[in-house]
Amino acid sequence: MVSLITAFFVSFIVTILIIRTQSIHGRISGDIDLNGPQKFHTRSVPRIGGLGIGLGIFSAIALRYQDSASNTEELFLLFGALPVFGIGLLEDLTKKVGVRTRLLFTALGALIASLLLGVSIDRLDILGFDLLIAMPAISIAFTVFAVTGLANAYNIIDGFNGLSSMVGMITLIALGYMGIQFNDPLLIFLSFAMIGAILGFFIWNYPRGLIFLGDGGVYLIGFWVAMLSVMTVSRHNEISPWFAVMVNAYPILETLFTIYRRKFHQGKSPGHPDGIHFHSLIFRRILNPSYISNELEWFNANAKTSPYLWVLSSMAIIPAILFWHSTPILMGFSIIFIATYVWLYKRLVTFKTPQWMRPQ
């Protein structure tokens, strides 16, 4: 609890200082590109909210390490997060760091964390595939790939106020809950300390959007969630590996569907931005009429978009918490989740939005 409070207040204070001093650093820290297909704001906003989160989690770990110098595992995860957060923050400040470079540094961070912590994905409960990833080199390579992909997935879903940050907190609650279930102080600390750090940012980002996560923030959250997901399954063999899949189902599916849509449906590069993500369609097809001239309202269409995806994400996380021990059940729920996602996406893109999704 002390760590959560420490992370929260450090993040809260740093974030408000960034907002209050944006007249000084706005030219460097501001998100001045307002014309991209994924842009839904009309004024420059600081995009270095990840700085508050990073300093918040650093403070919590420093405080814990001061109490007991034997807590090295927290430092190992922090070491792995440094290149991930650093390259993201550099992009936020310079706007010149390419996607490949960011992914390379994220992969480096995942490799560092995996080796130092001694955790990796070595099973998926899939006959044949488990024999392959049981080999240490392949297991570590697959872990690096998965962590890098999930960290980038958080960047993909970061389209509206409070979206990535709340999805991250909901997922971390699930991971922290598993730490409580298995009496794992490390998982409990790392989960709830990051929740505190994100919360200190969240209250300034949602609903008004006074500051954005930026690449530093989204990559840090995505990396942290990904590594804790790996650690949860690796440290406790009783937990199905599909628990980790299900608690991250929304960002994973959004990423895979985006790659499919851009590569095979549009014939474009998977890295080419577009404006037809699931969250973009909810905004444009369901809530956009209330957006006109209302961006400065407290609860505008931008803010109303995110709760739809919080609920969608929870549809996968709740079964994961209830059936964490059963791979067959979680596989079944994953199929249901995929079918629900595709059905809803098709209804939105063809202008056949279900009536229950429309605001009353």
Rank of each mutant, 00 (worst) to 15 (best):
I211A: 07
I211D: 03
I53K: 03
G271S: 13
I338H: 00
L296H: 14
N302R: 14
Q181Y: 02
N155R: 03
I32P: 00
I112T: 05
D274Q: 04
K95G: 04
T350L: 12
T72L: 13
K263M: 08
L256W: 09
F212H: 12
N152I: 00
N237W: 00
G80A: 00
W224Q: 09
G196W: 07
G56K: 00
R64M: 09
I170R: 10
L213H: 10
T6I: 15
R102G: 02
G98Y: 00
P136A: 08
D130N: 08
H325C: 01
W298K: 13
L344R: 14
L213W: 04
L220A: 08
I126G: 07
S234K: 06
A137S: 11
T6M: 13
G222I: 00
I338N: 01
F182K: 14
V14Q: 04
D215S: 02
A113N: 10
I126K: 03
L132T: 09
D158V: 10
A301M: 04
F58M: 09
V225I: 11
R347A: 12
D274G: 06
I198T: 05
L108W: 05
G98Q: 05
E295C: 05
N288R: 14
A174Q: 08
D33T: 09
A193K: 07
W298D: 08
D67H: 11
T21W: 03
A303H: 04
S280K: 00
M169F: 03
V45S: 05
L127Q: 14
K39N: 14
W324T: 12
A62T: 02
M178A: 13
I13H: 01
L124D: 11
F40S: 10
N183W: 04
Y260H: 06
L322G: 08
A7R: 01
S290V: 02
I24C: 04
N294Q: 12
W356K: 01
K96V: 01
M1P: 06
V99S: 06
S314M: 15
F145I: 14
F212N: 09
N288Q: 15
F333P: 09
I203S: 12
I259V: 15
I335N: 06
L51W: 02
A320C: 09
I16G: 10
H265F: 05
G267Y: 03
G88R: 00
A151Y: 03
Y65P: 05
V230G: 12
T143W: 08
I138F: 12
P307K: 03
G176D: 04
I19L: 08
K346G: 10
V14N: 07
D33H: 14
T353N: 01
P328K: 11
S334N: 10
F105L: 15
I282G: 09
L117M: 07
G26V: 04
D31N: 14
W298C: 11
P207K: 12
F40R: 12
I57R: 02
V97F: 03
D184H: 06
P328E: 08
M227I: 15
D122T: 13
G168P: 05
F223G: 08
G222N: 05
S114T: 15
I338T: 10
V14H: 02
I282F: 15
L220T: 01
I188H: 08
I292S: 14
V230K: 06
V233N: 04
L330P: 11
P83V: 05
D130E: 11
I126R: 09
S139Y: 01
H279Y: 08
F299W: 15
S306E: 09
R208S: 15
P307F: 05
L150Y: 06
Q66K: 13
H236E: 06
